[in-house]
Simulated scan of single mutants.
Amino acid sequence: MDPQQRPLSLSGAPDGPLAGSLRRGRTGVALFHGFTSGPVSVAPWATALAAAGADVEVPLLPGHGTRWEDLERVTATDWRGAARRTVDALLATHEHVVVAGLSMGGALALDAAAHRRVTGVVVVNPGLRFASPLAPLAGWLKYAVRTVEPIANDTVSPEADERAYPRTPVAGVHQVGRLQSAARRGLADITAPVLAFRSTTDHVVPPSSITVLSRGLSPGLLTLRPLENSYHVATLDTDAPIIHAESVRFLSGLPGSPEQAGQHG
């Protein structure tokens, strides 16, 4: 087990704009990391949301935080189930729940939003399509090629380290494809507002992923924010402060949020 890739459970600051005065009035955020990485990749984002008053849960997704061989034995169903259990736990104790995620975690957040009554969705470079033309063939290629070189630490900043696996199992890539298909199918069922951050240069997720998102959602739900100075792992990159500030602003403006309630109370 990587000692740094641990689940995060952060209580929101009581004086932040996302904090409520009632036991069920606080905002909860289910935040999901990307493929082959772990909570480290979204930890600064989670900390910023908690400082603003949200209770934040970042689960360690099945097959992650240990060794790459474990990713050969998990399925898209395992990841989707873990995400929904996290959301359900927050829904049981919070009036307002937002789902968020980076890359594959963005696909999980969108998939959960299609099946749960969440207040909002925030995604960073969500993975709904593969950039590699070979990735959709992973279901067959896994029998000939067990692993490939990792695509990790795609950042402008040389100091960033998401602590991803040193190899990427092809069987795991196949399961990411299954998750992507499920998330794409569910876009039309999402009713919550969606804020999507998109790096203008991304070496992992293609522009077609955002195209799929914008076309799949109902009109008026999507707000798109470009990131000019970050690559794929933008949550650890130069534009991370933009993600933090605009995520808090977005959550504060959602219908039923504590700040909105205060304005209309």
Rank of each mutant, 00 (worst) to 15 (best):
S230G: 03
P241W: 11
A100F: 10
T235D: 02
L49C: 09
R6V: 12
P62F: 14
D202C: 03
D78C: 13
R23Y: 10
L187C: 13
Q5L: 13
E259N: 00
R73I: 00
I243T: 06
A50Y: 04
R85P: 01
P150K: 09
G106K: 06
A131Y: 02
H244F: 15
Q263S: 10
R163C: 01
A144C: 11
P44G: 13
A82T: 12
M1V: 11
L217Q: 11
D237M: 03
R73V: 01
H232V: 01
V42G: 04
R85H: 08
A30S: 14
G186H: 07
A192T: 08
V123N: 05
I190K: 11
L251C: 13
A76N: 11
A182C: 00
L49A: 09
G256K: 02
R85T: 10
S230F: 05
R116C: 14
L31H: 09
G101S: 04
P126M: 07
G53C: 02
A51C: 08
V122L: 10
A83E: 00
G120Q: 03
V204L: 08
A113M: 12
W140C: 01
L22E: 15
G256V: 04
G127E: 12
G139A: 13
A30Y: 10
A52P: 07
E72D: 07
V176D: 02
L90T: 12
D202Q: 01
G65S: 04
M104D: 05
S214K: 15
H174S: 14
P44A: 09
L187Q: 05
H33M: 10
A196P: 05
L137C: 00
V170R: 05
S157H: 05
L179R: 02
V87W: 14
V233P: 01
T93S: 15
E72F: 04
T168F: 12
A48Q: 06
V29H: 09
T27N: 08
L108G: 09
S9Y: 14
S252G: 15
P39A: 05
I243K: 02
E57D: 10
G34C: 07
G106W: 08
G28P: 06
G81A: 14
P62M: 11
R80K: 03
W140I: 14
L251D: 00
G172D: 04
A114Y: 05
G65Y: 08
G127R: 04
A135L: 05
S252H: 01
A82P: 06
P7C: 08
G172R: 06
W79F: 11
Q4A: 13
P241I: 12
D237L: 01
R23M: 14
V173W: 02
W68I: 00
R129D: 15
A192L: 03
E69G: 13
V97D: 11
S157R: 11
P169F: 13
R73G: 03
V58C: 09
R146C: 00
V74Q: 11
R184N: 11
L254H: 03
R198L: 02
V124A: 14
L224I: 09
E228K: 07
D70W: 11
T66V: 15
H64L: 06
A89H: 05
P241G: 10
